[in-house]
Design a protein around this nucleic acid. Structure first.
Lengths: 107, 107
DNA sequence: CCAATCCATAATTCGTTGGTTATGTATTGA
DNA sequence: TCAATACATAACCAACGAATTATGGATTGG
């Protein structure tokens, strides 16, 4: 079990945090203030969430004067995609094994 | 934001729970006892995790005498795959828009 | 230079959750 | 029938996490 997937699942499990990430994916780079305006929580809460997202590699930050711009880094989602496909793959594999077994028994 | 994805992320965020699900994907149907033997937590804890997984549609249970067999239901992962692709898609879309813009500016 | 703005961090509170032990319910085997 | 097995549920506890308010540090505009 990849430790990266661990972090990704935990990071994306919180609805507020995932909403912030979704917005960054949809609308591109945003300042903390802009994100706070429609996050439904306080500015410190948003900053904290952004910190967690950054720690998971899901966003990057760019400092410009007294503003900090955050942007989504969707490439970081790759391990999630891999894990999901792998789980489905194991299942398919077993299914095929059973299928083969039944065919062999049929002869 | 899909409410199903909500449940999936929260359900899979716990390492013990995800390990149980992974094992069911890899090795197929298992009894609670078998899962408990290598889960590293008590049997009630495993039962509780299985309940959460079932509530998210990730496993199904089959009663046989005094045993309960659990099996993975990887189809339930579909919304997760959809969400991930969608996020990457938004990003790609914006990227292409920028790309197009740059091309048009270049003329 | 000073007040205001933007963001991050600290300190605290409180609900959620994952773990435990204890117990209940159903089924099996002797 | 009775003890043992398999699992689920209940009750409780400790730790974590997400929110708040308060504050600090840096930057900008007047």
């Amino acid at each position: 079990m990849s430790d990266t997937a661990e972090l990704l699942f935990k990071t994306l499990a919180d609805p507020t945090r995932r909403a912030i990430f979704e917005r960054l994916c949809r609308e591109g780079e945003q300042t903390v203030g802009a994100l706070t305006a429609s996050a439904g929580v306080s500015q410190p809460a948003v900053s904290k969430h952004l910190g967690v997202l950054k720690h998971a590699g899901l966003v990057r930050d760019r400092h410009a004067g007294r503003q900090t711009h955050y942007a989504a880094q969707p490439r970081a989602l790759a391990p999630l995609l891999d894990w999901t496909k792998q789980m489905a793959g194991f299942w398919e594999g077993r299914f095929n094994q059973l299928d083969d077994l039944l065919k062999r028994m049929d002869q």
